[in-house]
Simulated scan of single mutants.
Amino acid sequence: MDELLSVIYELTVKMENCLIQEDFVEFDLLLNKREIMMTRVEAEKYEHLDFHYSLSDVRLLKEIYRIDKRLNPLLKGNISKTQASLTQIKKSKQISKSYQPFIQQTNGVFLDKKK
């Protein structure tokens, strides 16, 4: 169990570094790996009916939890930035589409009409 939890801890630390460096592809890969490792920990817990975490495991789990709590605001901030960027791109596309037919005109008068 110690080995699995230490791998989860290392993956969590790497995830934090990826978020700070804004390497979201690597973050996603690490998140998937961590989920697999957590599933293995859960499976091992259910295999042994009288399973209890050792003191070192508990300390490691608390540290993982603390790092994970630091990741939440970073992740939410990046999601907000992404949503704002997507909204801006959507508005730009709408504006571009509304004026696109007039770009092909070579002569004439352009009248902008409010709806």
Rank of each mutant, 00 (worst) to 15 (best):
C18G: 11
D68L: 03
E47G: 05
L111Y: 00
C18R: 09
A43C: 04
Q100C: 08
L49A: 03
K114V: 05
Y53L: 13
D28C: 03
L29M: 12
E44C: 00
F102G: 05
T106Q: 11
L86C: 10
V41K: 13
M37I: 10
K113F: 01
H48A: 09
E47T: 13
T87L: 01
I95N: 04
L49N: 00
K93P: 08
D112I: 00
L71E: 05
L86E: 12
F110C: 00
M1I: 10
E22I: 07
D112W: 02
E47K: 14
I95G: 10
A84N: 12
K62C: 02
S54P: 13
L60V: 08
E16R: 15
I95K: 03
Q83A: 06
V13S: 05
I89E: 03
E42H: 05
I20A: 05
A84Q: 11
E26N: 08
L60P: 00
I36E: 10
I103M: 12
F102E: 06
F102C: 08
Y46L: 09
D57P: 11
I89C: 12
K45V: 02
K14A: 14
H52E: 03
Y46I: 13
L55H: 06
K90W: 07
T39N: 09
E16N: 15
R34N: 08
V7H: 07
R70I: 06
M15K: 08
L4K: 02
V58C: 12
